[in-house]
Design a protein around this nucleic acid. Sequence first.
RNA 1: AGAGAGGUGGCCGAGUGGUCGAAGGCGCACGCCUGGAAAGUGUGUAUACACCAAAAGUGUAUCGAGGGUUCGAAUCCCUUCCUCUCUGCCA
Length: 423
Amino acid sequence: MLQLQTLREQKNAIIDALKKRNIDVAPMVNEAVALDEKRRATQTRLDNTLAEGNKLSKDIGALYQNGKYQEAEAIKKRAGALKEDSKALGDELDLTTQALQKLLYQIPNVPHASVPAGTSEADNEEVFAEGAIPKLDTNALPHWELAKKYDIIDLELGVKITGAGFPVYKGKGARLQRALINYFLDKNTAAGYTEVQVPHLVNETSGYGTGQLPDKEGQMYRLEEDNLYLIPTGEVPVTNIFRDEILDADTFPLCFTAYTPCFRREAGSYGADVRGLNRLHQFDKVEIVRVEHPNSSYEALEGMVEHVKNILRDLQLPYRILRLCGGDLGFTAALTYDFEVFSTAQDRWLEISSVSNFETYQTNRLMIRYKDEKGKSRLAHTLNGSALALPRVVAGILENYQTPDGIRIPEVLIPYCGFDLID
RNA sequence: AGAGAGGUGGCCGAGUGGUCGAAGGCGCACGCCUGGAAAGUGUGUAUACACCAAAAGUGUAUCGAGGGUUCGAAUCCCUUCCUCUCUGCCA
């Protein structure tokens, strides 16, 4: 969430900048500032009341020790009255703070200056493209047909076991998945990211920390009995590693990578978008996460983009990079680059990675701070990206690498797969 | 899952109703001492919020979390989470 101090000091600039998201936050921001004023005033009154009460209590203690019981009793009455007051003020403070908090949860991050205006994905700005789009046979198949033809991914079997969107990978299909995970982790660790294995279930606090709650409440699977959530992305457990930490400024950058399955309810999705591997309830992803000094976070973002580019070059997949427009930008992000692979058989682009800088939006909730030169605590910046999400990479490989003899395996993956053709 | 013990500052650890944000130690920072280091020695060393233009300073809250009793709670009561030991179960 946004920082209150910034909201107070740069109210109009924030309202203006958020217009890029095609929303008018002026009413919310004004209310937040008003609530904050009320909160501070109430806090001051409460503190003063408590201070007086504390002083009286000390006096009572002293009087008792000196045997002046009658005087003590008289003061007790006054202290009792003060207690009533502080209770009322405390309740008021709680209500105000909660209302303010709720409001702040509803205001999205301020888009970076470079974020283009726009209302939908059609307005995203292509900033880079690379890789030749292969010329396929006229009877080239989409990946879901290929998956069936070579019996490597079984969607119906997943329906039997669980439901739609939970595929079963078989034989070389399963091996390809494992190869990709290992390859991605190797690439990421070689680039300086430390590999971590994290829980796939998180508690409510973690969900709030990275911003999935309350914004995406309905998109996560929840275990009612234990009040835990299945992670929608590795970002949640990995970023929460640093929740409530004050870091030394010289420990930056902190770079982590993790493979996790991801679970998404995808309520509201339908149509051609969800065919085959295009959209699943469970999928695998290797994530990269960075905690950065504010001065270097945008440099880090560019570095992450370069890193993902390298992976796609290795895989020799045609891809493009989009700078998301205000209308398509995620709730918590300040700037996001999406990577899309061209799916030749479907004749469409598939999102396979999303690399974002969240600036202090997450760390303000997570309380991830560092000490600056003056010894003051400041919020760090967080960034993350997929490197990479598996299903659509698999879709891209199956479709773009298909030949009449079978599906070729990208050169870099052959050592990981142990075969060079799916036939 | 059952029985018992326990959760105190960066770490260890004292504290069972009043002057306790919390003894003592370790660690860390700065200084003295030293040719240099060790030892020794002195000072400092939590976080959040509020007041203040800001610094200094002051106030409030925080002893796992939440609630209660009391003029006053680290200390008493309730709820809850977690850790350890034993038993059970299991990969």
